[in-house]
Nucleic acid binder design. Structure first.
Lengths: 246, 246
DNA sequence: AGCCTGTACCGTACGACGTACGCCAACTGA
DNA sequence: TCAGTTGGCGTACGTCGTACGGTACAGGCT
């Protein structure tokens, strides 16, 4: 009997029109767009109900006429942005074999993650199942259709690739956020951290970590290199998938 | 000149003793333990300064005598929990080849993610570099040492495996959280969602997504199966890593 | 013993957040 | 014209992290 959240209400909103204006021209679309702009510019935590309302020149509580609450607004933001992924002409299937197709899928998801650093903060939990999310699932599955995988394997392979991309994109977003919040870029941060770390670790011995950590941080000039992790991991995963095909 | 956050201060705290009590017996250790208990039981958002203080019977602001702020408390929570991973006797290296070693690393990380569902919410951004994090890095790298990989490859392979585990663990944590917050388990959620989704998707056509989605949800009885994704992805990744060795 | 100074502790308050509630004004249909 | 409905929104509540300033205890000095 807990009326916490009604999946039906959210779904209807997600698949609704978003453009029917109220008395003062307020639309769902305008609310969602304003929220996305705020999140793009300053991170998801900047997309508060108050600031979204200010941005479109309405009272804070007017938003609730068009959107049940913050959670549903988040879902709308996510599904809207997923619409950027495959715009009809860029169908990921039919561009060579499954390998090129999967690579394209990974690259598109990586791109959208870079463009909207808040995206992965807004997902998680149950999937959203808006129109663009379903379209995405369909488009991505098609690159794996008819090449000898079972339906379950198709889903598993796609999940694996997307999990990888989400992981490295989240890592990238985390670094950008850390830089914004600390005011220190990667090199400044390391210059501030390294001497303290060395002093505090004196006495302990970490031979392998010391050697490998030094090698990596010299090459990356950073505490991590998500772009490299993206490419390296994708190659390894695609090689591994190859063996499923036999 | 922005004095936002001082990496040195955090590091010193992380590597400090945590057990030196103040006038009323308050210690860093007690604060961190209380916060972890709250997060384990009710999620990271339950570990507020007020509730932590209540739990240990002190005033809210007394915590700030021992801990600079919420962010540093999070770091301490993370590093403390990472201490559970490898307790000396369970050294991941020296248990067969690299493949068994990597599998063990993945499983230990998966386990700790299940035990502390808030862990991945508390990480992200720059790495924490507390004693247990460094110990973890060293222990995990050792399973890849001396088997013909370059230092950079060692780091990349480990990152790949950990990114995978983090991704599926995050997915698992998301489902558990969704269940707690909505009061609906996976089957109830799907029973509430499916008919609405079908009605709203009428007219559109998603042949592959429909077929595959149905197959998966029948087998998993859920919107996703992180445990299966963990195992499937790990096998594929290990196969892919194999080709690096050659 | 008396006192001084540093610091552990903590009560209050501020500005953010999401949103419940209720009022007003503008539409709609009769 | 007037009643009923509904979009818009001002106020207020309970939450959060934490700045600030006061209180009272501990330890070192005379």
């Amino acid at each position: 009997m807990s009326a916490k959240s009604d999946p039906g209400r959210s779904l209807a909103l997600l698949w609704g029109s978003h453009t029917r204006p109220g008395r003062s021209g307020l639309t769902v679309r305008a609310i969602v767009d304003a929220a996305i702009e705020l999140a793009d510019a300053e991170g998801l935590e900047a997309a508060t109900m108050r600031r979204v309302a200010d941005k479109i020149g309405s009272g804070t509580m007017s938003l609730y006429t068009h959107v049940p609450g913050k959670a549903e607004l988040n879902d709308l933001m996510v599904d809207t942005v997923l619409g950027e992924l495959y715009n009809g002409v860029d169908d990921p299937s039919g561009r060579g074999g499954w390998r090129e197709g999967l690579r394209y899928v990974a690259e598109r998801n990586w791109d959208v993650g870079l463009r909207h650093l808040w995206l992965l903060d807004a997902t998680g939990g149950r999937p959203t199942l808006g129109p663009n999310a379903v379209l995405k699932y369909e488009a991505e599955l098609r690159v794996l259709d008819g090449i000898g995988l079972t339906d379950l394997q198709m889903d598993s392979v796609l999940t694996l690739v997307l999990t990888h991309v989400e992981g490295v994109a989240r890592s990238h977003a985390g670094l950008v956020r850390a830089q914004r919040e600390s005011g220190l870029d990667e090199q400044e941060w390391w210059r501030a951290t390294a001497p303290v770390l060395e002093r505090v670790m004196a006495g302990h011995d970490f031979p392998v970590a010391g050697r490998v950590g030094e090698a990596s941080s010299q090459v990356y000039q950073a505490s991590a290199d998500p772009a490299h992790a993206f490419a390296f991991g994708l190659d390894v995963i695609l090689d591994g998938v190859q063996r499923l095909m036999k």
